[in-house]
């Protein structure tokens, strides 16, 4: 479904991604883990068109998307739920969700989609009229997830949804990711919370200093000496 080949990316003169390869098949739940500054967010940005990659190719459902504009990419059904939530703080919860349905094909059915999102996140429905600014961190993350679903994506790339949240809420968010996956949405999840991530994903990639370090089935990675030392702390 998503295929990244030999991708490099730089900020000005500073290169941060080197020849990165990554593949996600339809229906998979793939994780991308790595330390702070490894280049995970940069990779997602280069895929979703927020940033132009230097070289390499990105293919989504048979379309070459490297160099395309973000709006064209989300139109194809690839939704990027950005790091640190990025909700529109001065708009209401409902308006945030409407913005998620901006692509024409999603706009027409936005009311029905919103009902489904409210089914998934009842707390958003209770707060539909409130400004997003007034939501708690966990609620804002739910809003960011719900908003990302409003474009009726076939695949979601989700950047650190657990960041800064209490353990109980993290568990709740991971449960929701699982149920999204069950409903047929392909997922690429970026996380620092390696233990919980390896427990729910099918496969994972480890990124170190902008290079592919390891990849494989999550159960194998969780057993690997390197991953245990560097990411699981034992």
């Amino acid at each position: 479904m998503l295929e990244i080949n030999g991708l490099s990316a730089s900020y000005g003169n500073v290169q941060v991604l080197w020849d990165v390869c990554l593949r996600v098949d339809e229906g998979e739940f793939v994780a991308l883990v790595g330390a702070n500054g490894a280049g995970k967010t940069t990779l997602l940005n280069a895929v979703s068109g927020v940033m132009k990659p230097g070289s390499g190719s990105v293919t989504f459902m048979g379309h070459r998307i490297d160099g395309s504009a973000p709006n064209a990419i989300v139109n194809l059904g690839l939704s990027h739920i950005p790091e640190s939530r990025q909700v529109f703080t001065e708009m209401s919860v409902r308006e945030n969700l409407e913005m998620g349905a901006y692509p024409s094909r999603a706009w027409k059915s936005r009311r029905e989609t919103m009902k489904k999102v409210f089914g998934l996140f009842p707390r958003l429905e209770e707060r539909a009229g409130q400004l997003a600014r007034s939501l708690s961190g966990g609620e804002q993350q739910m809003l960011a997830l719900g908003r990302g679903l409003m474009s009726l994506p076939k695949m979601c790339m989700i950047d650190e949804p657990s960041n800064g949240l209490a353990p109980l809420i993290v568990t709740e968010i991971f449960e929701i990711l699982k149920s999204l996956h069950k409903e047929g949405i392909t997922i690429l999840l970026v996380e620092q919370n390696v233990r919980q991530t390896l427990a729910i994903a099918d496969r994972a990639y480890v990124l170190e200093n902008g290079h592919n370090a390891l990849d494989g089935a999550c159960c194998d990675l969780a057993e690997s000496e390197h991953v245990r030392k560097a990411y699981l702390g034992h």
């Binding site: 979703s48 068109g49 927020v50 504009a69 973000p70 709006n71 989300v74 139109n75 939704s79 990027h80 950005p82 990025q86 529109f88 703080t89 001065e90 708009m91 308006e95 409407e98 913005m99 998620g100 901006y102 692509p103 999603a106 908003r147 474009s151």
Partner: peptide, 19 residues
Amino acid sequence: KAIRASAQSPTTAELMGVD
């Protein structure tokens, strides 16, 4: 709404599909 969203965060508005 797209204009208001773009005023707050052009990059996020783009991710929503705004040209």
